[in-house]
C-alpha cells in the first residue's frame, strides 16, 4: 500500500518536474508566471477530476480492495498544485500586495470563485488522514463531498478567466467531465 501510494504521489509530481525541466533547458521564456499559473491551475483541476473518477472506476472494473488511499493521494496532490497556484499568484501577480489582492477578490468574480474553490479544499486536506477519517466517522464522508463543489468552482474559475470563453475548449471539457461524473454518481 505504501509503495503504491508513493508511486502515485511521484507520478503526480511529474507535471511540476516537467515545467522545471523546460525552464532549466529552454529558459523560463517570455512569461514564466503565465506558464506556472496555467500548469499549476490546470493540474489541480485535472487531479480533482481524477479523484472523482476513482470510485466509478473501481465499480466499473469490479476491482476489489480499498481505493481510499488512491483518492487521498490524488486529492492531496490536487491541493499541492492549488496551493502552488495561489502562491504564484500572490507572489508574482500581486507582488505580495494584500490590498491589490482584496481589490481582485471583491471586484473580479473569477478570483472570488477560485478562492472559494481553494477554501473548500483546505478542510479536506486538513482532515485527509486516516486518524481524522476514524475520528469523524460518517461526518467525514459528508464533509468530503465538498470536493464536488470545489471541482465545479475550479472549472468555473477557469471558464471565467479565459479571454474567449466561447472559442476555448479546455474549460468546457472539464465542466463536461464534472457533469458526467455527477451523473454517474447519482446512479448509485
Amino acid at each position: 500500500m505504501v509503495l503504491k501510494t508513493v508511486g502515485v504521489a511521484l507520478a503526480c509530481l511529474l507535471p511540476v518536474v516537467g515545467v522545471g525541466w523546460t525552464f532549466y533547458h529552454n529558459g523560463p521564456g517570455p512569461n514564466p508566471v503565465e506558464t506556472l499559473l496555467y500548469e499549476t491551475g490546470v493540474w489541480a483541476l485535472r487531479l480533482l477530476l481524477l479523484t472523482l473518477l476513482v470510485r466509478p472506476l473501481w465499480q466499473a472494473l469490479r476491482l476489489l480492495g480499498s481505493f481510499v488511499w488512491l483518492r487521498r493521494t490524488l486529492g492531496l496532490a490536487a491541493f499541492f498544485y492549488a496551493t502552488l497556484h495561489l502562491l504564484v499568484y500572490f507572489m508574482f501577480d500581486l507582488n505580495l500586495d494584500l490590498a491589490a489582492g482584496w481589490e481582485d477578490l471583491t471586484t473580479r468574480p473569477f478570483i472570488l470563485v477560485g478562492m472559494l474553490a481553494y477554501l473548500l479544499l483546505v478542510p479536506l486536506a486538513l482532515t485527509s488522514s486516516v486518524r481524522w477519517q476514524r475520528r469523524l466517522g460518517r461526518a467525514w464522508a459528508r464533509l468530503h463531498r465538498l470536493v464536488y463543489g470545489a471541482t465545479l468552482l475550479g472549472a468555473l474559475h477557469f471558464l471565467l478567466l479565459v479571454k474567449n470563453p466561447l472559442a476555448t475548449l479546455e474549460p468546457w471539457l472539464y465542466l463536461g467531465i464534472w457533469v458526467g461524473l455527477m451523473g454517474v454518481r447519482s446512479r448509485f
Binding site: 512569461n31 514564466p32 508566471v33 508574482f92 507582488n95 481589490e103 481582485d104 473580479r108 471565467l160 478567466l161
Partner: peptide
C-alpha cells in the same frame, strides 16, 4: 481604468517574473 478581470496598475516586462 482596470480591465474587468485584472488591474492595469502594473505590467510585467517580457522575460521578467515580477510585474
Amino acid at each position: 481604468v482596470p480591465h474587468p478581470r485584472w488591474s492595469q496598475q502594473r505590467e510585467r516586462p517580457l522575460g521578467s517574473w515580477f510585474k
